[in-house]
């Protein structure tokens, strides 16, 4: 655990040193702020003190920004060869993946923490359902964890950051929207399966303020699966 944390700390520092962190924070807050407060179907149109429109916006901004955060994580180590230096230290493949995952997740959590003023603002306008807000944030964090894991897997299979970004977006699109569209096209069991696979199904129920173990299991198992795949693809150097 300590090793994982040392790796996470270095990655997090590297995000801030390379300005990536600031750019992502500004863009994330800028976009989500713009669409939540000013443009489109914004928070004032709903007519009640709720953050659901913000969660809807963050659902998409995170989908786009997370692959940009994760694309570098392993691909760059593959390209420069530093992966060899890292893995010949007392570091296991799992600790490496875990550390990188933790760093990206922490950065997302920091970004989300900067949106807490939204909560305070809305709470001062009307009677805010605090449970729903908590669930919404939890949903965003779980959603991010899934996309970070997918992004890490994408980053582990290549030494090219752009390729890693595109693979992550490609895989992510299925969970983000394609499975949802398929669920609407098919009836019966097939439709239900696609519906279950879609992230939006689970995220929406959470942002409404309902925590169901089914949703938690969905997010956690996707996350573990993708992290395991990333770990396996690191071990492929031996094949």
């Amino acid at each position: 655990m300590k090793t994982t944390w040392i790796i996470a700390k270095r990655e997090l520092n590297s995000y801030f040193d390379s300005l990536t962190a600031y750019i992502v924070l500004i863009l994330f807050l800028g976009f989500s702020g713009l669409f939540t407060w000013i443009l489109g179907n914004d928070i004032f149109m709903v007519g009640q003190a709720s953050l659901r429109s913000f969660f809807g916006v963050a659902y998409w901004t995170l989908f786009i920004f997370i692959p940009a955060l994760t694309m570098r994580l392993i691909a760059e180590e593959n390209r420069s060869g530093t992966i060899e230096l890292l893995l010949t230290k007392p570091v296991t493949d799992r600790q490496l993946v875990g550390g990188k995952f933790l760093a990206a997740l922490l950065l997302v959590i920091i970004a989300l923490a900067f949106t807490l003023p939204y909560v305070i603002t809305v709470a001062s306008i009307g009677n805010l359902d605090q449970g729903a807000v908590f669930c919404g944030y939890l949903g965003l964090i779980l959603l991010s964890a899934v996309y970070i894991s997918i992004g890490l897997y994408a980053s582990s299979v290549t030494s090219n950051q752009i390729v890693a970004f595109l693979i992550a977006i490609f895989i992510g699109l299925f969970f983000q929207i394609i499975f949802d569209m398929l669920a609407r096209t098919f009836n019966g069991v097939t439709g239900q399966v696609f519906n279950f696979l879609s992230v939006s199904t689970h995220f929406e129920s959470m942002s409404r303020g309902v925590i169901d173990t089914k949703d938690l299991i969905y997010f956690l198992s996707l996350m573990i699966l993708a992290l395991k795949m990333a770990e396996d693809s690191l071990a492929k150097r031996n094949a």
Partner: peptide, 25 residues
């Protein structure tokens, strides 16, 4: 271990890098 081609984290300052290496070891 000093690998071939000496891969290092180019964006890190030397002292931070040595600190990181020491911690992870």
């Amino acid at each position: 271990y000093l690998p071939e081609n000496n891969p290092l984290y180019m964006e890190m300052p030397i002292m931070d890098y040595l600190q990181f290496s020491a911690e992870i070891l």
